[in-house]
Deep mutational scan, measured.
Amino acid sequence: GKMTGIVKWFNADKGFGFITPDDGSKDVFVHFSAIQNDGYKSLDEGQKVSFTIESGAKGPAAGNVTSL
């Protein structure tokens, strides 16, 4: 299901970062391709987001990332 969290950091040049889930679980990798907006796909440190957990090739990653 949907989770919420805070963006820990995001490197716009490399197109990835990490989200710290509100439930205290392990930080989740986020790739820019998972960001659900029409414009420039980037996130800001400290931004609140909702997301799902998808299993990627390198382990769990955030999917369906939407800013709240």
Rank of each mutant, 00 (worst) to 15 (best):
D13G: 11
V28D: 00
A57G: 12
L68F: 09
D13R: 15
K8S: 08
E45H: 13
K14I: 11
K8N: 06
S33R: 07
K14S: 06
V28Q: 02
S33W: 07
S50Y: 09
D38W: 06
T20D: 03
F29S: 02
I35T: 03
N37I: 14
H31I: 04
V65P: 01
F18Y: 07
N11C: 04
T52E: 10
W9K: 04
S25K: 08
G15Q: 04
L43S: 01
S25F: 08
S67G: 13
N64E: 07
T4A: 07
N11T: 05
N37W: 10
F51P: 00
D13K: 15
V49A: 02
N11R: 15
A34C: 04
D27G: 04
M3D: 05
A62V: 03
T52F: 09
A62R: 01
V28H: 02
P60Q: 12
Q36V: 10
S67Q: 12
N11I: 06
G1C: 05
G5E: 00
I35Y: 05
D23H: 12
D44C: 05
F16I: 15
T20R: 06
T66M: 12
K58C: 05
V30I: 07
K48S: 09
I19F: 02
F51N: 00
D23C: 05
I6K: 14
A12C: 04
T52C: 05
W9Q: 03
D38R: 03
P21Y: 08
F32A: 11
D22F: 12
N64H: 12
D23T: 11
I53L: 12
K2C: 05
G17A: 01
V28W: 03
F51Q: 00
T4S: 10
H31Y: 07
P60L: 10
G15R: 06
M3Y: 10
T4L: 13
F18H: 03
F32W: 13
I53N: 05
D23M: 09
Y40T: 11
S25A: 13
M3F: 13
V7G: 01
A34F: 04
V65M: 02
E45L: 13
V65H: 01
W9N: 03
V49I: 09
T52A: 06
G1V: 14
G63F: 12
L43F: 06
G63V: 15
H31C: 03
F18I: 06
E54W: 08
E54S: 13
N37A: 14
D38M: 08
F32Q: 11
A12V: 14
K58H: 13
N37E: 15
K2P: 14
G56Y: 10
S42Q: 14
F16W: 13
E54D: 12
K14Q: 09
Y40C: 05
N64R: 06
A57L: 14
G56C: 04
F10V: 04
K48I: 10
K41L: 10
I53Q: 05
D22W: 08
K58V: 08
F32P: 02
D23I: 06
S50W: 06
S55E: 14
D44P: 10
A61Y: 14
F29N: 02
W9D: 02
T66D: 07
T4Y: 15
D13P: 08
N11A: 11
F16N: 02
I35L: 07
G15M: 04
G46D: 04
F10L: 02
K48T: 07
F32C: 05
G17T: 01
F10W: 13
S33M: 09
V30T: 03
G1H: 09
T20A: 11
H31D: 03
K26T: 11
V49S: 00
Y40N: 11
V49P: 00
E54H: 07
F29E: 02
F18N: 02
S55H: 15
V30S: 01
I53R: 08
A61E: 15
I6S: 09
E45W: 15
G39C: 04
D23P: 03
G24K: 07
V30K: 00
E54Q: 12
T4R: 07
E54R: 07
H31F: 08
D27Q: 08
T20L: 07
F18K: 04
T66S: 10
L68C: 05
T20C: 05
K2E: 07
N64C: 05
T52D: 11
V49W: 01
K26C: 04
G17S: 01
F29G: 02
T66P: 01
G15A: 03
E45S: 14
D44I: 12
S42D: 06
D23Q: 07
T66G: 05
W9R: 04
K26R: 09
K58D: 11
G1I: 14
D13M: 10
A12M: 13
I35G: 03
K48E: 07
K14V: 07
G17K: 00
D22N: 12
Q36R: 11
G46K: 06
V49D: 00
K41I: 07
S25C: 04
A61V: 14
P21Q: 04
G59K: 08
V65Q: 01
M3C: 05
G63K: 15
A62Y: 01
V30Y: 04
D27E: 14
A62K: 01
V65I: 06
D27M: 08
S50C: 05
W9C: 04
G39Y: 11
S33N: 08
F51C: 02
A12G: 12
I53M: 11
I6A: 07
F16D: 01
G17W: 01
A34N: 12
G56M: 09
D22H: 10
N37F: 14
S42E: 09
F18V: 06
G15C: 03
G59S: 09
H31A: 05
K2Q: 10
I19N: 00
A57E: 09
H31S: 05
G15K: 05
S42T: 15
P21N: 05
I53F: 08
K14M: 15
P60G: 05
F29H: 02
V49E: 00
D23A: 07
S67D: 11
F10S: 02
T4N: 08
K41M: 08
F18A: 03
D38I: 09
K2L: 11
S67R: 12
D22L: 09
K2M: 12
P21A: 06
Y40G: 09
N64Q: 10
A62M: 01
E54T: 13
F32Y: 11
N64I: 07
I6T: 13
K58T: 15
A61C: 05
I6C: 05
Q36Y: 08
G17Q: 00
K26P: 13
S67Y: 15
A62I: 02
I6V: 15
K48C: 04
F32D: 03
A61N: 14
T20N: 07
P21F: 05
G63Q: 10
V30C: 04
K14C: 05
S55Y: 14
D27W: 04
F29D: 01
F16C: 04
V30D: 00
N64V: 07
F18Q: 03
K2V: 15
A61K: 14
G5C: 01
K48M: 12
H31N: 04
Q47F: 06
K8E: 02
G59T: 05
S67P: 11
S55Q: 14
G24D: 06
S42G: 12
Q36P: 06
N64W: 08
D38H: 12
V7C: 04
G5K: 00
A34I: 03
N11D: 10
I19C: 01
S55W: 13
